[in-house]
C-alpha cells in the first residue's frame, strides 16, 4: 500500500480528535480526543518507518505509547480531583483559577 493512504488516514484521525478536544465540554471525552491525536501521530510514525525501512519510528511509537499512559493516568487523576471539588466534569464550569 502506498504511504499517502496511511498519512491521509492519520490526518483524518488527528482532525477528528482535535474537533472533539475543541468542541466537547466533557473532560472525559476531551481526554479521549487527546488519545486519538496521539494515535494518529503513532500511525504517521509507523508509516514513515515502513516507507523508509528504518525502525527508528517504532522506538518513537513505543515512547509515545508510554507517554500516553502517563498522560492518561495524571489527566484522569486531575478529573477525579475536579469532580470531588466541584461535582462536575464540564470544562466550562472548571473556572476556579479565573476568579
Amino acid at each position: 500500500m502506498p504511504t499517502f493512504y496511511y498519512l491521509i488516514l492519520s490526518f483524518v484521525l488527528f482532525l477528528i480528535g482535535t474537533t472533539g478536544v475543541l468542541l466537547r465540554r466533557n473532560a472525559l471525552v476531551v481526554l479521549m480526543g487527546i488519545e486519538l491525536q496521539l494515535n494518529a501521530g503513532n500511525l504517521a510514525m509507523l508509516t514513515y518507518s515502513r516507507a523508509l525501512g528504518d525502525e527508528k519510528g517504532h522506538v518513537f511509537a513505543f515512547l509515545i505509547i508510554a507517554l500516553a499512559a502517563a498522560e492518561a493516568a495524571v489527566g484522569l487523576a486531575i478529573l477525579v480531583g475536579l469532580f470531588r471539588n466541584r461535582q462536575t466534569i464540564n470544562l466550562d464550569e472548571a473556572n476556579l483559577m479565573k476568579r
Binding site: A70, V74, I78, V80
Partner: peptide
C-alpha cells in the same frame, strides 16, 4: 520515559 512513568504514578496519587 521510565522516570516519566514514575513521576506520573506519584503525581496521580498526589492529585487524586
Amino acid at each position: 520515559i521510565s522516570l516519566l512513568l514514575l513521576v506520573a504514578i506519584v503525581g496521580g496519587v498526589v492529585v487524586s
